[in-house]
Nucleic acid binder design. Structure first.
Lengths: 213, 213
DNA sequence: TCGGTGAGCTGACAACTGTGCACTGACTGG
DNA sequence: CCAGTCAGTGCACAGTTGTCAGCTCACCGA
């Protein structure tokens, strides 16, 4: 037990340095993954790009799969709060739709490599990474369902229908993100994708307003 | 006796043999791709599994990317007619929905490796393969839109809304296919996925019946 | 029947891979 | 202050990779 002086600086120069090279490994891997997939990425390739010796890799990750899981956490971990805030913010349907699409668009604009990684490895060749992404997306769906349940017009929905709708929304946003990636840097093409995404959401919202038929 | 001059055999023993080993290359690659992705698959690995010498690979494909494109064609090429027939068959909405989901389910059941390959390489690390899959899916969307246009209730739809709806349907079926793969061989889990897919389609059909709001 | 074609083979090459081992030296807690 | 920890290094190893050149020999058309 630490009955030490109680200083605030717990970091330690050593651990900080370690975290820095760990981060440079993650960055290097992410950059290399823009043009190939994780199962084709070599350990030496990554360490070379990160500027360290190959064997130093093992100080941070057991595997490339291990590194991949860390990348998933980095890509998706901080997003839950954002999504939750966005959903809770507005009640008006049209505003909610516009805000959600804008959120996805900004995510793709600001972190294209992360999004590309997720799209690629969601069904990729490395099981632990696949499962990490899938689990994270499931968590998103549950959170979205919880927010949907707070809307008055969903008060009489069955729980499973609510989850179905939430998962549908999540899937729509994921495919929107990949479509935005595929559209590339062309602003006009990106705007077309966003507009189509909004229309899709409008259609689904319209359907759910008349549910269950 | 054996060498009848006017035989109908247009194939030729030689070309037939070549096609057979080409096919065994495709089969071997597909089998190996169940547990990794194309950009991590080695030429030697494939030829070893196919039972031929490494250099013989070049007699059939220039690249692994080339082989991948051939796999896309094999996986998706024959599907257009099936989809078209399925859509044209029934007019009743509920029957159409059930039939479509059943078609996807059967596809996954009968050709799981092909479907897995498509899901994996749709956003995978090999550009030509990505583009081949994307182009094929676009063609599907156009075909679906053409079939939708024949329905009386869609007579007053704008062309772009029709395409939006068609693309939505295609994306829904693609995500349904991956979900079925993820569900694995468990029949109960598969049935749950199918039921949710039907509900999704019902919701979308409901929304489109009230379009544009 | 005979020369040409071409699918598939063998052997070899340099380049690259993941990982084990022993080492250094800056940091650390007591 | 000093002994211990541990991130990072260098070297070595056995395998594997893609590809080249040249060979065989079953098939082909004429």
């Amino acid at each position: 037990m630490s009955h030490t002086t109680g200083s605030a600086a717990v970091t330690g120069v050593r651990q900080a340095r370690k975290r820095r090279t760990r981060q440079s490994l993650l960055d290097a891997a992410l950059a290399l993954l823009e043009e190939q997939s994780l199962s084709g990425l070599g350990l030496r390739e990554v360490t070379r790009a990160a500027g360290i010796a190959p064997t130093a890799f093992y100080r941070h990750f057991r595997d490339m799969a291990d590194l991949g899981v860390a990348l998933v956490e980095e890509s998706l971990g901080s997003l839950h709060a954002t999504v939750r805030a966005n959903l809770a913010a507005t009640v008006d349907s049209e505003r909610r739709i516009a805000g959600t699409v804008e959120l996805v668009a900004r995510l793709v604009r600001e972190h294209p490599a992360h999004v590309r990684f997720l799209a690629r490895e969601r069904h990729g060749g490395v099981r632990p990474v696949r499962e990490a992404i899938g689990g994270e997306l499931d968590r998103f769906a549950v959170e979205v369902a919880a927010e949907l349940a707070r809307l008055p017009e969903a008060s009489d929905w069955r729980r499973e229908d609510l989850l179905m709708l939430a998962r549908l929304y999540v899937d729509l946003m994921v495919t929107t993100a990949s479509a935005l990636l595929a559209a590339g840097p062309d602003a006009a093409a990106g705007e077309r994708v966003e507009e189509e995404a909004r229309r899709r959401l409008r259609l689904v919202a319209l359907g759910s307003r008349h549910w269950p038929g």
